[in-house]
């Protein structure tokens, strides 16, 4: 045998059927002629089969019903959207409020900023929190999509 044996990653990908077509032919040809690699591939396939053969677990009760009984009905979506942005942004809102208080204490005039800005600022900050969440809103790290804790 002149060619080098494929690495473990290539065999693992072959077992999953995800090797690029261009690479797959070469690896398959090698495996067909190399008993050591053939044995490694068989072992990987057996492991996969064993894992897939594990018994499926069942929770054993109707979690849907239990959860439903614990959930407060959510408000309708249209007015709820603004509300949700509002209460999720309690932290930036508190920050904005603190800044306002500080501004007043410092004697900074807020007249030019006006009521519009005080209303908009927290929402804008809240949106930046949402922007940090990638498409699909899949959490880049634990709790990234859990901006509020669930009350129990």
């Amino acid at each position: 045998m002149t060619e080098a044996c494929p690495d473990h990653e290539a065999l693992s990908a072959l077992a999953d059927g995800v090797l690029l077509a261009s690479a797959e032919e070469g690896v398959r040809t090698h495996v067909a002629r190399c008993p050591a690699c053939a044995a490694r591939l068989v072992e990987l396939q057996a492991l996969s089969e064993a894992l897939r053969g594990l018994p499926r677990e069942s929770l054993g009760f109707d979690l849907g019903a239990r959860i439903e009984s614990r959930l407060p009905a959510r408000a309708q979506p249209t007015p709820q959207r603004r509300w949700r942005l509002g209460w999720r942004s309690l932290v930036p809102l508190a920050g904005a409020a603190a800044a306002l208080v500080l501004g007043l204490r410092l004697g900074v005039s807020l007249v030019s900023a006006g009521p519009v800005q005080t209303a908009v600022l927290p929402a804008v900050q809240a949106m930046s929190v949402f922007d940090a969440v990638p498409p699909g809103n899949l959490c880049p790290r634990p709790h990234a999509c859990l901006l509020v804790s669930v009350s129990r």
Partner: peptide, 15 residues
């Protein structure tokens, strides 16, 4: 906000 619809999804994926 339909909790019943959510319960259906929970049942589908709970196991």
């Amino acid at each position: 906000g339909d909790t019943g619809a959510f319960a259906t999804l929970v049942r589908r994926y709970q196991d």
